[in-house]
């Protein structure tokens, strides 16, 4: 009889759990890149997040893996960059997952690039130019001026998907926006010291931030956007006149460090390896932290240069 009671109460508990689930259901979010997962986390801290890529992966080249298809199937909203960054895998994920909520034109699909002014859009693009996105440079997550608009649009769209939480999300957006403005004025002050510096880059990942900081691009290790650095292109770079004024080589942690190291050996320039997006480490866990970290790295080569260590 005791067993019977236990069974019955267990059954009742299970029933309560099942009926309670839809009410307590966490918002399930599929983020294409970690930066958007971090932003969602600020706006909906209890969201159940799946992130398709990490800072160690090139977001252009992800496979539409079975685990990602299953994650899109379960999600309430997908938050991605857009502007063709995910063209090689996201359409396949959406097609295979067949999630009726996550389809283009519906609130369940958010593209950050739709809410930003992209740099260098092209009227004419052909493949001989390399992997150029006609919409413009999609790596907009490191733009201190554009992120607020993206976050605002994201907060509104998250609210559309989860109307009950809309007011709370809006409140968190306002708080985030205040923090961001404060950070941005700090970065503005710090930028004065590094303005006018120039760096060698690999791909256009950091372009928005570098332009905002007033840091020039001396050269690109990629011969054409999206093509890996070749030996002939690298040796050609040595003759680049801008190289003499460069203060560092800036590469992302998902990129093969060899080309940068080779150029460093030839030129004596320091190599800065920074994550292209947020990581699990405390200092670069948020987009604000990441931008601060990149500025810090640029500051350190600057002071290194003035001490004549080059």
């Amino acid at each position: 009889m005791g067993t019977d009671m236990t069974l019955r109460s267990a059954f009742a508990a299970a029933l309560m759990l099942v009926t309670a689930l839809p009410v307590q259901a966490q918002l399930k979010v599929f983020a294409c890149e970690p930066e958007w997962a971090a932003l969602v986390q600020e706006l909906v801290p209890d969201a159940q997040l799946t992130t398709a890529t990490s800072h160690l992966q090139d977001p252009h080249y992800i496979e539409a893996r079975p685990s990602l298809i299953a994650a899109v199937r379960r999600a309430d909203i997908a938050v991605c960059t857009g502007a063709s960054l995910e063209a090689g895998w996201l359409p396949m994920l959406l097609e295979r997952a067949s999630n009726p909520d996550i389809q283009s034109g519906r609130p369940g699909l958010f593209f950050a690039a739709d809410h930003a002014q992209l740099h260098a859009p092209h009227d004419h693009v052909d493949r001989s130019m390399g992997d150029v996105h006609p919409e413009g440079n999609p790596h907009v997550h490191l733009s201190p001026d554009q992120l607020p608009e993206i976050a605002r649009a994201l907060a509104r769209q998250l609210g559309d998907v989860d109307p009950e939480a809309a007011a709370a999300i809006q409140g968190r957006y306002i708080r985030w926006r205040g923090d961001w403005n404060r950070l941005r004025s700090e970065w503005r002050d710090r930028a004065e010291a590094i303005e006018g510096q120039s760096v060698v880059v690999q791909h256009s990942n950091y372009l928005y931030l570098l332009r905002w900081l007033g840091v020039d691009v001396a050269a690109d290790l990629e011969p054409k956007p999206g093509l890996p650095p070749s030996a002939s292109h690298l040796s050609g770079l040595l003759a680049e006149p801008g190289l003499a004024d460069a203060s560092a080589i800036l590469v992302a942690s998902y990129q093969d460090p060899q080309p940068a190291e080779w150029l460093a050996e030839q030129t004596g320039l320091p190599v800065i390896v920074v994550p292209g997006t947020v990581t699990g480490d405390a200092s670069t866990e948020t987009l604000g932290g990441l931008i601060g970290e990149i500025i810090g790295q640029l500051e350190s080569v600057r002071s290194g240069a003035t001490h004549g260590s080059l």
Binding site: D114, A116, Q117, Q146, R152, R177
Partner: peptide
């Protein structure tokens, strides 16, 4: 509630995405 948001709306208006269809 939206009145509190309004000041933040002004700046982003300037950078509205130019959708070129």
């Amino acid at each position: 509630m939206y009145s509190r948001v309004l000041p933040f709306w002004l700046a982003p208006l300037a950078v509205m995405a130019a959708v070129n269809v």
